[in-house]
């Protein structure tokens, strides 16, 4: 099977690629970022933006059977909204268009649970049918929501391509270097005084497994992907080996807002996710794909803890 993976310079792509390469799949990786020093991609690697023509050429040359799109850029990486919009929304649409044109059989798109939005009126155990409130609540997340919409539209419109959209909860793990993992690795980790919402975490290996299942499935649909269970933020900090640091949100919001204006890559729109619960159910994914997380919540969080080896990132 020929698999084209985007976001290939990221750790999650490497985890997935290693799994696929081990069973003999032929891999091509694309990313706008260069590969971090000391990291190799198990297959061909092309450094290009998804809107560039070189990506078209890669599709023509490789003729992939499967496209796995992990290439959503986060606020922490690209703080300019317009740049993020171009890469995430226009880039995704371009990739999907190419997938259709070059008759890719299956497409897997990694979205995020953030699209549901942190709102105090959310019910618990959100299903895939619940409204995506994030763009209404946090304009900074509009690109993530629109990426999700682009993928689901594609899913229903071009039924000859088997498309799976995954909306995982907070992905954490020893090799990742995303916002939540960096927070959990801190010795003293902030939480908002008086607010200690439930969160869900899923281990990087479980997500890699979920992506593999989706790439193999021959099914289509939108699915939440979660770990074993819920845990409060302060418990999560302790399980990761840190100390919760109480911060009054009335001070934190303006402060983080100021830092965000300085383009320090602080995602201020994610703060509400530490005040109100956004709990999803992945019952549908478990049922249709036979998915079950291999790690418990405690194991998952212990694996990111300070004691874990530092990430192999630059």
């Amino acid at each position: 099977m020929k698999v084209l993976v985007t976001g290939a310079a990221g750790q999650l792509a490497v985890l997935l690629a290693r799994r696929l390469a081990a069973r003999g799949d032929q891999l091509t990786g694309i990313d706008a970022r260069p590969l971090p020093r000391g990291q190799t991609f198990p297959g061909d690697f092309l450094q290009a933006r998804y809107t560039q023509r070189r990506v078209d050429e890669a599709f023509r040359r490789v003729r992939p059977d499967v496209l796995v799109h992990l290439g959503r850029v986060r606020t922490a990486e690209v703080s300019s909204f317009s740049q993020r919009y171009t890469q995430n929304v226009l880039g995704t649409r371009r990739l999907l268009d190419l997938a259709r044109r070059y008759e890719v059989r299956r497409v897997v798109v990694l979205s995020t649970f953030h699209v549901y939005g942190a709102h105090q009126h959310n019910h618990l155990h959100l299903t895939e049918d619940d409204p995506l409130r994030a763009s209404q609540l946090f304009p900074e997340l509009a690109d993530a929501v629109e990426l999700d919409h682009a993928a689901t539209n594609f899913l229903w419109r071009y039924r000859r391509v088997e498309t799976v959209v995954l909306r995982p909860v907070n992905i954490v793990g020893p090799t990742l270097n995303n916002f939540i993992t960096r927070l959990l690795r801190a010795r003293r980790c902030p939480y908002f005084v008086g607010y200690d919402p439930m969160l869900q975490f899923v281990h990087e290996d479980d997500v890699a497994r979920a992506l593999e299942l989706a790439a193999d499935a021959g099914k289509f649909g939108v699915f939440n992907v979660a770990g074993e269970g819920v845990v409060s933020w302060s418990h999560a900090i302790r399980l990761a080996g840190g100390d919760p640091l109480p911060v009054p949100h009335v001070l934190a919001y303006p402060l983080v807002g100021a830092l965000a204006r300085l383009r320090l890559g602080v995602p201020k729109h994610l703060m509400d996710y530490f005040r109100y619960p956004v709990i999803v159910t992945d019952a549908r994914f478990r049922e249709e794909f036979g998915y079950a997380p291999a790690r418990t919540t405690v194991e998952t969080l212990a694996a990111v803890g300070r004691s874990a080896p530092p990430p192999g990132q630059t």
Binding site: L124, H125, M198, E228, G229, V230, V231, S232, H235, A236, L239, P277, I279, T296, T297, V298, E299, L301
Partner: peptide, 13 residues
């Protein structure tokens, strides 16, 4: 119905 961290699916501890 508690998980490994001691919470049930609705946040009961």
């Amino acid at each position: 119905q508690t998980n490994s961290a001691g919470f049930d699916p609705w946040g009961l501890h």
